[in-house]
Design a protein around this nucleic acid. Structure first.
Length: 422
RNA sequence: GGAGACGUCGCAUAGUCCGGCCGAGUGCACCACCCUGCUAAGGUGGAGUCCCCGCAAGGGGACCAGGGGUUCAAAUCCCCUCGUCUCCGCCA
């Protein structure tokens, strides 16, 4: 939800943002009209209601024998109040609908355009080179007894897999390493629900353009989350929290579920694009004044993770049209995947400014006793199952073994090399 | 799955049977001030959230889990939903 005050005072800013996203400008004018209609309807209702209340007090105080006459007199007013109330309710609902159709306003400097219009901020690390034909992550995973796609398909269908043996251990090592990194940075770990109510899913903005990406359990009216961001954003919904002294930082550990609708034929091999995976997600609630700095901080933590694992990567500033509805700016860190000769997204970090917080009603006070204001929320990946792809491919050797990046070894009881099992 | 109890302003509670100065009393906590040479105690006052009108001062409205209904009038009566607790059953 964008700021309604901004809608009234500076709609041109919103129109500009819409243009950069390649989205409709008309929705802005529709929202302005709906706002006007809503306020008129509320005023009309409240005037009538005040009249009715005043009359009610008169009736209560009147002598018994006069009550009947007074009551008869006010019945017509009661009907008008009821009518005005329903008009106001409808106007309110129409305004909400108009407002929720507007995505977040992009931050100045975000490149305009669509998916391919991103700007590369930097490339870091040396792309690995091999004096042998490198195996892709699935070939390696099978050789190492780490990934079993066949049985995943047998049990659950396409895009499902088993992590087996060192594969399972490697994922847990990565996740725990990420968790420790988050702990060192002052994040509070949370293991989150992965089924959430419609209003939470709605509030985080995932039911917009990409609604068909989300699993829905109709019998229970619950959504399976594609990231713990959803639960983390909902954590403080309808609360006034204390972030005046510094951010509230959480690290959410959860399984994530994605339908991958519309991606048939893409990344069908291996665990690049799957229906279910693990993720450790950072989430910050913060004074909006400090949101940009926090965004940089999250990005720095992500880059630190990739660097420590010896992965080559680039950082991109996602174009406006490729942002989700909640994000005002998004940086992706993409690791080099040798057998694809391409960078693939390993992390993403979004500054949602006050957009999510407005929808989910999460506020703070800048000073004790002062007015409430929506907080800013930011999120960012710290590790996911997909990282195994880059780790395996980058650190492979001619014999099919894989050198374990140094930081993960403590989480693997000192294991330094993953050896082929066949 | 069955039976029952409950959900009030940060916390704890009163009010609900018998609808009407109850947006709501009390205690604790909180904030400001006063008093007592410290500590403790005491006194006075203030406190919620959201929305609408207004430059402001201020005025008005909504909110007693949520949503409907009855009524001139609902925390209070009726219905539905959600949640919590207790007991029984079932269970990976």
């Amino acid at each position: 939800m964008i700021d309604p005050q901004l809608l009234r005072e500076n709609p041109e800013l919103i129109r500009e943002s819409q243009r950069a996203r390649g989205a409709s400008v008309d929705v802005v004018d529709a929202a302005i009209a709906a706002d006007r209609a809503r306020r008129d309807a509320i005023s009309a209702f409240e005037t009538l209601r005040a009249e009715q209340k005043a009359f009610g007090a008169t009736v209560a105080k009147a002598p018994k024998d006069e009550k009947a006459a007074l009551v008869a007199q006010v019945q017509e007013l009661a009907a008008r109040v009821k009518e005005a109330q329903s008009v106001a309710n409808e106007a309110e609902a129409a305004f909400d609908a108009a407002m929720t159709s507007i995505p977040n306003i992009i931050i100045d400097g975000v490149p305009p355009g669509g998916e391919d219009d991103f700007v590369t901020l930097r490339e870091v690390g040396e792309k690995p080179s091999f004096d042998f034909e490198p195996r892709d992550h699935l070939a390696l995973g099978e050789t190492l007894g780490a990934i079993d796609m066949g049985r995943g398909a047998k049990v659950s269908g396409a895009r499902f897999y088993f992590l087996t043996g060192v594969g399972a251990r490697l994922e847990l090592a990565l996740m725990n390493y990420a968790l420790d990194t988050a702990l060192d940075a002052g994040f509070t770990p949370l293991i989150t629900p992965t089924l959430v109510k419609p209003e939470i899913m709605q509030g985080t903005g995932f039911l917009g353009a990409h609604a068909d990406e989300v699993y829905y359990l109709a019998d229970d009216e619950l959504y399976l989350t594609g990231t713990s961001e959803v639960a983390l954003a909902g954590f403080h919904s309808d609360e006034i929290i204390d972030v005046a002294q510094g951010p509230a930082r959480y690290a959410g550990w959860s399984t994530c579920y994605r339908r991958e609708a519309g991606s048939h034929g893409k990344d069908t091999r291996g665990i690049i694009r799957v229906h279910q995976f693990q993720k450790l997600e950072m989430f910050s609630y913060i004074d909006p004044a400090n949101a940009v700095a926090e965004h940089e901080a999250l990005l720095a933590l992500q880059e630190g993770m990739l660097q420590s694992l010896g992965l080559a990567y680039r950082v991109i500033d996602t174009a406006a049209g490729d942002l989700g509805s909640s994000a005002a700016r998004k940086f992706d860190v993409e690791a080099w995947v040798p057998t694809q000769g391409a960078y693939r997204e390993l992390t993403s970090t979004s500054n949602c400014t006050t957009f999510q917080a407005r929808r989910l009603n999460t506020r703070f006070r800048r000073e004790a006793g002062g007015k409430t204001a929506p907080v800013a929320t930011l999120n960012g990946t710290l590790a996911t199952t997909r990282w195994l792809v880059a780790i395996l491919e980058t650190h492979q050797q001619a014999d099919g073994s894989v050198i374990v990046p140094e930081p993960l070894r403590p989480y693997l009881r000192g294991l330094e090399i993953l050896e082929p099992t066949r």
